[in-house]
Nucleic acid binder design. Structure first.
Lengths: 367, 367
DNA sequence: AAACACTTTGCACACGCTTGCAAGGCGGGC
DNA sequence: GCCCGCCTTGCAAGCGTGTGCAAAGTGTTT
């Protein structure tokens, strides 16, 4: 036992020396010195080997209850926390998942991010958030960052990565999830809604309400889901023998909605039913229709949106819309990332199609 | 030179062998194997030492232009990206900053997060996002996660950490920023607004508009900034010799705003001016006042909010409010985290007070 | 030609952790 | 009493990187 004690003492001195050297590495700048407790120190205090400490914090490893108790006690006392950078290095699994997104402050985006981060946390992962803008290489830069931090996966909510960089990710063993982007990349999970069918159901509702002159208000971003809604709406209208007035303008914002109202409601044949590709557009559209054109909704004009953002339920809008199943989307993504899924199943589940539920409120007559 | 070549060949074999072992570590599960390119492989291809590769990607290190060229070329060809986990391990500086936040999907919160992630990215850092809920140890758990990933800093937007865990962070060399939380923790950066003074300016505006019966609508969350607004409003009203009707209810949500309207507008002495502690509350309040009590704003009722969320500018609300200087807040936080600030300056700047600008719109008479 | 300063490069150790391997301890069945 | 198997533990190799140190190379001055 005495020998062990001496050994422990020696170990302690070594650890202490290392800390000193570490903190002096940058000259005298003490503020720089990050001095975290290491497993070695815990081991010394608990009187066990460093491996025992490691095993204590590794689920499924073999440690006796007695050793575990001693280790946990020492760790608690010293404020020890496993270094996930080092663990990630060894395990080849960082626990990091990158969320790549633009227009983060938008209601729909932020609620999706909330659901994703929450469910990732529950699954023992952690979210890194990377902002992109409209510029070209933006998503690629974000993916590069994901690679640098050896993220286990990246979830792309906006934009599309370059083929080559996406392939680099996959080759490196990183998983890729694309939400609402239609890409043909092999090996990625693609989550989409039944936008086309949903748009068709809007036509039905408009027709039931007795509307004759349909219109579609879109942004000119031309993302796959927006275009799918447009196509679905057009096709269903054609099936009912109805023409559709289409306008596209700007991003999917409230302001664009106002502009689109300006464009559509000043047409010779004023529409009596408008499907806005997005709730934000719909809110802007509604406000313009009411306050600038003094139209009453739904008596003179029926309006539908898409996303079911919180504002759609506010009494000033009371908008009939489609709910984005954000929780289900997040669940699909996170469970696909989970390790319990074997590779054949993962392969076969590379594309998921979720249902957008119609949320009936007061902006369409009848119901 | 021949000797060198042989050595390179040997190195290559070793690296290759390692990769094989690595990919076989988990039985035959090939999907698991993360096979990233390492600096060693780049070095072999470029015909230089591994340190040269390292130095090439370390700003300020000494490498000849010729070597750099060869390295960059090889790295490009192989798709090499520096492993930030390993770099963080060595440098004691991960580049990670944790954002700890609840109610992430709320307009004000999400716009602050957007500003923060953006500016962190510009400063060469990267944001980790951790969701908290109302439960007690939630923030502590988040900070533990920040410690595990050896984050350079944590920015807390909601809730307050336990004293002991905050101290552990600081002792470990992690930086702590508290936004809109009044805490006495030494060594942290505290960013606050002039809530009290702002609330006073609302009173002035209400008095100028000829309002007599003031009211304050608050959530019952009792966070420091909310209480500061309440106090400021009360004090200023008292200075004008006016009483204030106060109601507190629920979280800072749209729904709570409606309930608060219910409570305040059914009072015997119906208020003719209401300051809502938050824009979300104000939106709910406005909708209830208009649609349930058929009041016209601002003719019969003046309303003010706080935060200047996007919806406040929508024509249905057109709310007079105070802007949260999110970009300035983010800038303060990020520049404080930056390494160029020396420790005395950082110490002396441990508390920042920013100005909330009054945004005049149509929910108060006059202006 | 020698001495010098300066830049560049490779070696080797360190960062904190995981895990295969072998050795030790222990109880049960013969 | 011995052997076998099981559980636990320590050893040591390794993950991919940064960096101090010394050696090598280059250009300048005496």
């Amino acid at each position: 036992m005495i020998v062990v004690r001496i050994a422990n003492g020696a170990l302690h001195s070594i650890a202490f020396l290392c800390k000193l050297m570490c903190s002096n590495r940058h000259g005298g700048d003490m503020a720089q010195g990050k001095i975290y407790v290491s497993a070695l120190e815990v081991a010394e205090r608990a009187g066990v080997s460093r491996s025992a400490v490691s095993r204590t914090f590794t689920p499924g490893a073999s440690v006796s209850p007695e050793t575990r108790r001693k280790v946990v006690e020492a760790a608690e006392a010293l404020g020890y926390h496993v270094n996930h950078l080092a663990r990630g290095l060894m395990r080849n699994e960082s626990g990091i998942v990158c969320l790549i997104v633009s227009d983060l402050a938008t209601p729909y985006r932020s609620s999706l991010i909330k659901a994703l981060t929450q469910q990732l946390q529950n699954a023992g992962k952690i979210a890194m958030l990377i902002n992109t803008d409209r510029s070209d290489g933006s998503v690629d830069l974000a993916l590069r960052q994901a690679i640098r931090y050896r993220a286990d996966a990246s979830i792309i909510l906006s934009g599309l990565p370059d083929k080559s960089i996406a392939e680099l990710c996959l080759k490196s063993g990183q998983r890729l999830v694309l939400i609402n982007r239609n890409d043909e990349q092999e090996g990625t999970l693609k989550i989409n809604l039944d936008d086309r069918e949903a748009a068709g159901r809007v036509v039905t509702a408009f027709v039931r309400a007795g509307c004759k002159r349909l219109a579609f208000a879109n942004s000119d971003a031309r993302t796959p889901s927006l275009m799918a809604r447009e196509e679905g709406f057009l096709n269903a209208a054609k099936a009912h023998g109805l023409e559709v007035a289409i306008e596209r303008f700007g991003g999917t914002t409230y302001e664009s909605g106002k502009v689109l109202a300006q464009k559509l409601m000043t047409r010779e044949e004023r529409p009596d039913a408008v499907f806005c590709a997005t709730d934000l557009l719909a809110c802007g559209f509604l406000d313009a229709a009411r306050h600038q054109f003094s139209l009453s909704v739904p008596e003179e004009l029926c309006v539908a949106g898409f996303d079911d953002i919180e504002q759609a339920s506010w009494s000033s809008y009371n908008l009939t819309t489609f709910s984005q199943p954000v929780e289900a989307i997040a669940q699909e993504a996170v469970s696909w990332l989970g390790d319990e899924m074997d590779s054949e199943l993962r392969q076969s589940r590379s594309s998921r199609r979720l249902h957008a539920e119609l949320v009936w409120r007061g902006s369409i007559r009848g119901g």
